[in-house]
Design a binder for these strands. Structure first.
Lengths: 262, 262
DNA sequence: CGCTATCTTGAGATAAATCAAAAAATGTGG
DNA sequence: CCACATTTTTTGATTTATCTCAAGATAGCG
């Protein structure tokens, strides 16, 4: 769905931003075709990655690089004191990677592909230079920085229960993907239970239990790593803090419980 | 210590950035006197606030404003689903407020002064305009945005115990203030136990218990809201995940309990 | 001096962790 | 295509850090 034309060779065929599927949510969002082309000219190269490939590792020199995701999904993570990976971010098409390292010497985190993906590489110094005659570009970047900051801010709001965190996580993922398709109910998260657990700061056992419960409530349908959101309103209620159905149904009013088998 | 000359009247006497105590850690950090003066010219006005004053409230229109803290301390917070305040940030001299709202219409959080404070007000559209002929300014802002993003990122790394969170919080606060005085051990946090609790996402009872324990270990000295860091190495060890002294001493190796005065 | 805020401390309740062991899926080689 | 090894997911029993509820202690203030 993301790959249209293109046989996207590795560093060749630098598909122009103007034709990119992510254009509307990426750096040139809202720009004219002409300006979009100027942005396109700043792409140093494009990289293809397969699941598990590292885009960048902790302690690697930054050299002013940063990336825009053309397609795919990525996770960024740091290691805590026990070496356990702490996932700090999931990012998909249109999102910018490395904005938190613009003025750093070396990366403080690692970023790897969760599935086969493509990214465009930029240079910050070069962008600064280009911005001298293209102020809208600097502004677009600042806007993205600000937005990302606001999003991170929102993550700091706490939850009473792990289930609420998970519901918020799902809602957010669905929202990020629904810029084109508002009724997108299929969520393909290329994440193991363990990876979800690392992100939500719970154990994999807890993730499994949460998923089972939500499935029992008919809010989601699960088949391995393929999720189907069956009851968006119910999900939002849990995300908003409506206490889940620990004991009494007290139901989210959505007892229709669509049984997605398989 | 922050107020030097100046009798800082309200919107008058816009003390120039060049003479501001926060110059080295604020927007004009690293700039020449001439450039610093240019930044100073962008200050729309200065505001004085007393403890409890709101700088900006949730849902208020933004109008492109943002602020630099000249002196004092602020907290930013949102309300969770039960109305409990979730503190997402503490900020002091030199830090910029409102960068997460640059492209928002209305604020999504509130910010209030924790003690008597002064801020400089800027306009983002005006800065964008100024940046056309002053690219270093845009760059400085981007740099600050990036740094703040990296800091927030770091906050997302989880802790096993509330005590570890608290130790990290203290270390971070000490670090933020030690740009001038590396041996600053007195920490005046204008925060109630409840406010600390809201930030760390624990209850005030837990905060009290943590403080008592750390005091018992000789790591901090406490007198109401005045904290004294007695054993920085010990504190860092706890912040780094060294399990605290729940039962056996198993000492953090800093049994010297460094009463390290100054 | 008493009032009110804030802070401390204790006892019981609980969501999630830990430990542990099946069960299901995936991969490998004969 | 089927046995076997490996990984991932599910499920259960016990433990634990922190919460909740509640009472007592301390500081600040009119």
């Amino acid at each position: 769905m993301y790959e249209t034309s293109s046989s996207a060779s590795d560093a060749a065929s630098p598909l122009s931003c103007c034709e990119c599927n992510a254009r509307g949510v990426c750096l040139p969002a809202g720009m004219s075709d002409a300006d979009c082309a100027r942005v396109s000219g700043l792409v140093l190269q494009q990289h293809r990655l397969v699941r598990g490939d590292a885009l960048q590792g902790v302690n690697e020199p930054v050299h002013g690089r940063w990336y825009a995701i053309r397609s795919g999904q990525f996770k960024s993570f740091q290691a805590d004191q026990h070496g356990k990976p702490c996932i700090t971010r999931f990012a998909s098409a249109g999102e910018l990677l490395g904005l938190d390292s613009l003025d750093l010497d070396r990366y403080t985190d690692s970023t790897t592909a969760l599935c086969d993906s493509t990214v465009c590489e930029f240079s910050y110094p070069q962008l600064v230079e280009a911005a001298r005659h293209f102020p809208d570009l600097a502004r677009s970047l600042e806007c993205r920085l600000s937005k990302q900051l606001a999003q991170q801010q929102a993550l700091l709001v706490r939850c009473d229960y792990a289930e609420q965190k998970f519901a918020q996580f799902l809602s957010h993922q669905a929202w990020k993907r629904s810029y084109q398709d508002d009724h997108m109910l299929e969520l393909h998260l290329d994440l193991s239970r363990q990876e979800i657990a690392d992100y939500l700061d719970v154990t994999h056992a807890t993730v499994t239990r949460m998923i089972s419960r939500l499935q029992g409530l008919g809010i989601i349908g699960v088949r391995y790593r393929q999720l189907r959101l069956l009851d968006r309103p119910g999900l939002h209620q849990i995300a908003a803090g409506q206490h889940p159905a620990s004991k009494g149904g007290a139901g989210t009013a959505s007892d229709n419980a669509a049984h997605q088998p398989a």
